[in-house]
Design a protein around this nucleic acid. Structure first.
Length: 508
RNA sequence: GCCGCGUUGGUCAAGGGGUUAAGACGCCUCCCUUUCACGGAGGAAUCACGGGUUCGAAUCCCGUACGUGGUACCA
C-alpha cells in the first residue's frame, strides 16, 4: 500500500446527497488507483446540527455503493478516533499555539455585537461585512484589549472564541488539481473562528489538524470550499508547514436540472426524482425522502452515472465498471464547471446496467418487489428465465413487475379493443383447434409452439400475424411483452391452453 | 454589495489555433416487430456576447453579460 491517503469528511446532518456520493467516489477511485487508503472521518463539530442516525445511514449508503472505507468510525484504523467530537481535546493546543505565535487571538464579541457590527458596516456602505483587519481593532478581542483585561475576561468565564488573524496585503496561492494556480488576496479573507465558545473547533481548524494528524495527502471537496481555502493554506503554513499540506482538488457542483443552482433535496421532491442515495427518514419530522436504491437503481449504475457527471476518459465510452473507473479515472480530466443532473439519462444508465448484468445480480431485490405485490417466487430457475425475457424493457427494478407479472398470473382483463375487430367465428375456430393441437404436443419448446400455430394457420388459411396479436392478448392481456411463443413456452403447455380457453370464453 | 469560480446543442459532453464541431441522453422520422422493448438508418448546435491577437479562434488575451459558490461560534 502506498502512502497516498484521502478522506471523505461528511457531517452527519441528514441524507447523503448525490454530490456527496460523487465526492466519495472520486476519493475512492483515486485511493484504489494509487494503492492508497480511503478514510471516512465524521465531522460532527456542530452539536446543534447533530441528527440521530445520520452517521449510520451514511455508512449504509457507502456499503450499498460498494465504496467501503479502509479506515473510519466503523472500520477502525491507526488514527482513531475518526469522529471529530471524540477528538475534541486535540484541537485546543493548536489554537493555543496560534495565539501564542500571534496568528490568532481571543474574541469576546457576543452574537448581538457581531450583528451590530454588520449592521454598522452595511449602513456605512462598506463592501465587506467581514470580521477582518478593517474592523478587528474596533471589536472586543485580545488584539484590542490590554493583556490583563483579556486575562480577567477569561478568568471570569466570559465566553470567547479564537479567531485566526489574517494579515492584510498578502497573497496566498496554491495549485488546485482541477483548476490550476489559485491566488487569493488576504484583504478579502476574514478572521474566521477556529475554536468556538463551546471548545469545539470549527471546520477550518478541524480539517487542517485532522488532515495533518491523519497524514492525508490529497484533499477532494466541493467547490463551495474554495473561498475558505486561503484560511486553510495559512493554517497549514502556521501549524505544520506547507510541505506537509495535502494537494487540493475542488470538485464542481451538481446543479438542478431546471434553471440553475445547486441540486437540493427539494428539487428532487419537486421534479420527482431522488437526490439521496438511499431512503432517508428525518427523525424529527418523520418525513421520508426516497433514495436511488429504493427506487430501483443498481449500485453499479448509480456509481457509473455519478462518475461521468463531471468526468470522462476522453473516449466515447460511457459504461464503466468500478474496476474500469479505478483504472481510468484521473482528477485532471474532471470538469471545472458544474453539471446539471439529468434524471432521464440516469435511468438510461440503469437500463444499460440491467441489461448488462446477469439477472442473478439483482434477482433478490426483484423477488422482493414481486413478494410485495403478492407474488411469491418458489421456482427460481423459472424466475430467471422470465427476468431474462423482459430485462431489456426495464429501466428501474420495479419495472420488472409491470413487465413480468403476467408470467405468474393469468390475465383477468383483456385489451378487447385490439382484439374485437379481428375476432370472428373463424378465429374462434382456429384457437379452439389450437388448444387441441397444443395439448397433443409431446415437447413444449418455443419452436414447437410456433410451428404448430403456423401450420394450423396455413391449413386454415389465416394470416399468422393477426393470430399472433390475438394470441398475445390471450396470454398477456395486452399488447406487450416478449415474443408470444417465448411467453407461451415459458408459462407452459397447460397454462397456455388454459389461458386461450379463458380468452375464448371472454371474447365470445 | 464584496470576493471567487464557471459558460460548446434541451441535458451530459469530445475537441484547447486550420475538424464536415465527435459521441451519449432526450426528442422527431424511418426500418425491424402486426405489441412493447432491443437493434438499425436518419434529422436538428458555429461553440454566451463584444472587442482584440493571428493569414486563420470554439480554441489565446481583455472586457461585458449571465449563472453559481462564499461572505455563520454550518459543514
Amino acid at each position: 500500500m502506498s502512502n497516498i491517503r484521502v478522506r471523505f469528511a461528511p457531517s452527519p446532518t441528514g441524507g447523503l446527497h448525490l454530490g456527496g456520493v460523487r465526492t466519495v467516489l472520486y476519493n475512492y477511485l483515486f485511493a484504489r488507483q494509487q494503492g492508497g487508503s480511503f478514510i471516512v472521518r465524521v465531522e460532527d463539530t456542530d452539536q446543534g446540527r447533530f441528527v440521530e442516525g445520520a452517521e449510520q445511514y451514511i455508512f449504509n449508503c457507502l456499503k450499498w455503493c460498494g465504496l467501503e472505507p479502509d479506515e473510519s468510525v466503523l472500520h477502525g484504523g491507526p488514527f482513531a478516533p475518526y469522529r471529530q467530537s471524540e477528538r475534541k481535546p486535540s484541537y485546543r493546543q493548536y489554537a493555543d499555539q496560534l495565539v501564542k505565535e500571534g496568528h490568532a487571538y481571543y474574541a469576546f464579541d457576543t452574537p448581538e455585537e457581531l450583528d451590530a457590527m454588520r449592521e454598522r458596516l452595511k449602513a456605512s456602505g462598506s463592501g465587506s461585512l467581514q470580521y477582518d483587519h478593517h474592523i478587528r481593532m474596533s471589536m472586543r478581542n485580545s488584539l484590542n484589549l490590554l493583556p490583563e483585561e483579556t486575562e480577567k475576561l477569561i478568568k471570569d468565564g466570559v465566553p470567547y472564541v479564537i479567531r485566526i488573524k489574517i494579515n492584510a496585503n498578502e497573497f496566498v496561492s496554491f495549485t488546485d488539481m482541477i483548476r490550476g494556480e489559485m491566488e487569493f488576496d488576504t484583504n478579502n479573507v476574514d478572521d474566521k473562528v477556529l475554536l468556538k465558545a463551546d471548545g469545539m473547533p470549527t471546520y477550518h481548524l478541524a480539517v487542517v489538524v485532522d488532515d495533518f494528524l491523519m497524514q492525508i495527502t490529497h484533499a477532494f471537496r466541493g467547490e463551495e470550499w474554495m473561498p475558505s481555502a486561503p484560511v486553510h493554506i495559512l493554517l497549514w503554513k502556521f501549524l505544520f508547514g506547507l510541505d506537509a499540506m495535502p494537494q487540493w482538488a475542488h470538485l464542481p457542483l451538481i446543479l438542478k436540472p431546471d434553471g440553475n443552482g445547486k441540486l437540493s433535496k427539494r428539487d428532487g421532491d419537486r421534479l420527482g426524482f431522488p437526490v439521496y442515495a438511499m431512503d432517508w427518514t428525518d427523525p424529527k419530522t418523520g418525513d421520508l425522502t426516497k433514495g436511488f436504491k429504493e427506487l430501483g437503481f443498481l449500485p453499479e449504475a448509480f456509481i457509473n452515472l455519478l462518475a461521468v457527471l463531471g468526468w470522462n476518459d476522453g473516449t466515447e465510452q460511457e459504461l464503466f465498471t468500478i474496476q474500469e473507473l479505478t483504472d481510468k479515472f484521473s482528477i485532471s480530466r474532471v470538469h471545472k464547471g458544474g453539471a446539471k443532473f439529468d434524471y432521464e439519462k440516469a435511468k438510461w444508465f440503469n437500463h444499460e446496467w440491467i441489461k448488462k448484468l446477469p439477472v442473478t445480480a439483482y434477482l433478490p431485490q426483484v423477488k422482493e418487489i414481486f413478494a410485495a405485490k403478492g407474488i411469491n417466487i418458489d421456482d427460481e430457475a423459472y424466475f430467471i428465465t422470465v427476468l431474462n425475457l423482459v430485462k431489456e424493457r426495464c429501466s428501474l427494478l420495479p419495472d420488472f413487475y409491470e413487465q413480468a407479472a403476467f408470467f405468474f398470473n393469468a390475465p383477468t382483463s383483456y385489451d378487447e379493443a385490439a382484439v374485437k375487430p379481428k375476432w370472428d367465428e373463424a378465429k374462434k375456430d382456429f384457437f379452439t383447434m389450437l388448444i387441441r393441437n397444443y395439448t397433443e404436443l409431446e415437447d413444449w419448446e418455443i419452436e414447437t409452439a410456433e410451428n404448430t400455430c403456423k401450420q394450423l394457420a396455413t391449413e386454415k388459411n389465416i394470416k399468422i400475424g393477426e393470430l399472433q396479436m390475438i394470441l398475445r392478448v390471450m396470454l398477456v392481456g395486452s399488447k406487450m411483452g416478449p415474443g408470444v411463443f417465448a411467453i407461451a413456452s415459458a408459462i407452459g403447455q397447460t397454462d397456455t391452453c388454459k389461458r386461450i380457453e379463458n380468452a375464448i370464453a371472454v371474447f365470445g
